[in-house]
Amino acid sequence: MQHYPESTLYVVATPIGNLADISLRALHVLQLVNAIACEDKRHSQPLLRQYGIETGAAKPLLAVHQHNEAEAAGLVVERLQRGERVAYVSDAGTPAVSDPGARLVAAVRAAGLTVMPLPGASSVTTVLSAAGVTRAEGSTDSGTGFVFAGFLPSKAGERDQAIRALRGDTRATVILEAPHRIEALARAMAVLQGRLVTVGRELTKQFEEIATIPAQELAAWLAASPQRTRGEFALVLHASGPLETPEDSTRVLQLLLAELPLKTAVKVAAEITGAPRNELYETALKLKNE
Rank of each mutant, 00 (worst) to 15 (best):
L75H: 14
A178M: 02
E71W: 01
N289I: 05
I36C: 08
A188Q: 13
G241F: 08
E209D: 07
G145V: 01
V29Y: 12
V236W: 01
H28M: 10
P226G: 01
R171Y: 00
V89F: 05
L128W: 10
Q2I: 06
R42T: 02
F207C: 00
Q193K: 13
A172L: 11
R49H: 15
L166Q: 10
V11S: 05
T264N: 13
L262W: 00
A188K: 09
T170P: 13
A184V: 09
R109K: 12
G194D: 14
R42D: 08
A190Y: 02
E6D: 14
G132S: 02
D169R: 15
A275W: 13
P226K: 02
L218D: 06
H28W: 11
R277F: 00
R159T: 12
L287N: 03
V147P: 01
Q206P: 00
V266L: 11
V77Q: 07
Q81A: 09
R277N: 06
K205Y: 06
M116Y: 03
H43N: 13
A26K: 01
Q227G: 00
T250D: 08
L152C: 14
A190P: 07
Q216C: 15
L80D: 15
G101V: 00
S98T: 13
P214T: 01
L222N: 03
N278M: 11
G83D: 13
A111M: 03
P246H: 09
A26C: 11
R25K: 13
A186N: 04
D99Q: 09
L61C: 12
A26G: 15
P119A: 07
G145C: 03
D99M: 03
A72R: 15
G241M: 08
T140C: 06
G132L: 06
L9Q: 02
L196F: 04
L262R: 14
Q206E: 07
A265I: 02
A57C: 06
D40K: 12
Q227S: 04
E137V: 13
L75K: 14
A70F: 12
